[in-house]
Nucleic acid binder design. Sequence first.
DNA 1: AAATGAGATGCAACAGAAGTGCATTCTTTT
DNA 2: AAAAGAATGCACTTCTGTTGCATCTCATTT
Lengths: 144, 144
Amino acid sequence: MPNTVINTMEEIEEILEERGVRPTTMRLLIYKFLSEKRVALSLKDLENKFDRSDRTTLFRTLKTFEDKGIVHQIDDGSGVNKYAVCALECNCEIENDLHLHFHCNTCNETTCLTDHKIPQISLPAGYSAENVNLVVKGVCEKCS
Amino acid sequence: MPNTVINTMEEIEEILEERGVRPTTMRLLIYKFLSEKRVALSLKDLENKFDRSDRTTLFRTLKTFEDKGIVHQIDDGSGVNKYAVCALECNCEIENDLHLHFHCNTCNETTCLTDHKIPQISLPAGYSAENVNLVVKGVCEKCS
DNA sequence: AAATGAGATGCAACAGAAGTGCATTCTTTT
DNA sequence: AAAAGAATGCACTTCTGTTGCATCTCATTT
Ligand SMILES: [Mn+2]
Ligand SMILES: [Mn+2]
Ligand SMILES: [Zn+2]
Ligand SMILES: [Zn+2]
């Protein structure tokens, strides 16, 4: 049950414009690539895919996407940042949108478990939460 | 209410030996420093403290401590690994010992909330968990 | 006590990821 | 067409983590 969504280029163009991001060719391709993968991707993954484009462009595209709420960054503990497209309703808000991420120790892939919201966390007095990152490591469905 | 524990050098020596780590002078000092701080420390923090010792030694000491279950590594999303001493009973096992970590966006300090265990996480069929990392970001008691 | 050997430390160098300044190219607006 | 603004490409830098190898320290054996 991959949560892969195939968007037409026209749809992607709309998504980017809605978020105030100019839909250049590279950006459309990058978004398409990200959205077709069911796992989170690193800058290196983009470099491998788009070897004719410069690292910096790919890097800044990810940053732009992140700033505009088009993708979210995932720190899965591997030491490299990964990115995955946000769901349409996602605003990366702590109240409703935070899901957990699963990192497989076998295939090293990181998956968004968008249906698995992070449970309510209680904190000591005086602490206030702005963001929560929950990464479960283990063996994924495919590798078990 | 800092969970700071002051150990004598003799006590620290025992702790290291129990775990099969030879209690050299540097190791004793490093353990002491770690255990007196209520926040997780990075390699850089150790470098600043022990400027007469080599980076590599500090690095390898942390690795050794981690391997032997003397400290646990914390990935707080800041991009640098941090370390904190384990509680005595801690074996870093998923069943009983996993606590959440709090990263303050103001002072950039990361705290072990050892009393706040990570709640039970449900996973989709086919996924098995070996480890869980839960980091809450926000404003800490001190900064609020 | 001297020799031995394992482990710890220090130095140097490297690898990978992230980030920045600036020149160039492309796109949109006037 | 000209000008302005944004995106891209190239080079270079910084930061963190990591490893190889020589040297030193210390406990044990002879
Ligand atoms: Mn996700
Ligand atoms: Mn901790
Ligand atoms: Zn897997
Ligand atoms: Zn703080």
